[in-house]
């Protein structure tokens, strides 16, 4: 039996996978969105920049920038939950490198944003919760705040079409039926 891997290796592998997921999407880079990870929990940050302003008189964040930030957070959370269970089964090659799971992005079916107060010219944070995660589609809720966690300035609910090959293995009843369909 192989002994358990050192915690640093596991963390490094998870951080690499997250960076790969986020770094592959040009629009995430354009907006400047970054992700922090604590275990499987992700928090997205939208650092304030002048190009995010929609109303220069207030000034306030553009509703479209806020919406995109929420949608990015939902999509990354959903993809993250899809690949998360696979970390435990990855095997390093002779050089000790691990091929990261490659997944397709889910597709947004619909996205509804609720603007509760205007976005201030400051950094914004968001977390997403996958409320339903089925084989065909998922339902995700996202909340964004700025200085004060309890004062949400925008929230959204979206439905997403899951990629064909990535069966979602995080249902409580999944048992040992973890998808082996994702190669690479």
């Amino acid at each position: 039996m192989a002994k358990p891997e050192p915690v640093q290796l596991i963390k490094q592998r998870r951080d690499q996978a997250l960076a790969g997921l986020v770094g592959a999407v040009p629009y995430i880079g354009f907006l400047g969105v970054t992700f922090d990870r604590r275990g499987d929990e992700l928090t997205a940050t939208l650092p304030f920049a002048d190009r995010l302003i929609g109303n220069p008189l207030l000034p306030a964040l553009h509703g479209g920038a806020t919406a995109a930030f929420l949608e990015i957070t939902a999509l990354i959370e959903l993809s993250w939950q899809t690949i998360w269970p696979q970390f435990e089964t990855l095997k390093p090659d002779a050089q000790g490198n691990v091929a990261m799971p490659q997944i397709q992005m889910p597709k947004t079916i619909d996205f509804t944003v609720d603007y509760m107060r205007s976005g201030l010219p400051r950094d914004a944070y968001a977390r997403a919760r996958v409320n339903r995660s089925g084989r065909r589609y998922a339902s995700v809720h996202v909340e964004a705040w700025q200085d004060n966690r309890s004062r949400i300035f925008a929230q959204a609910t979206g439905h997403f079409l899951m990629p064909e090959m990535a069966a979602v293995p995080n249902a409580p009843s999944a048992g040992g039926a973890v998808s082996g369909a994702v190669g690479g």
Binding site: H62, G64, A67, A68, I72, F111
Partner: peptide
């Protein structure tokens, strides 16, 4: 990205 479509429509 859907977010860009959303921004345009908003």
């Amino acid at each position: 990205h859907g977010g860009a479509v959303f921004a345009l429509m908003d």
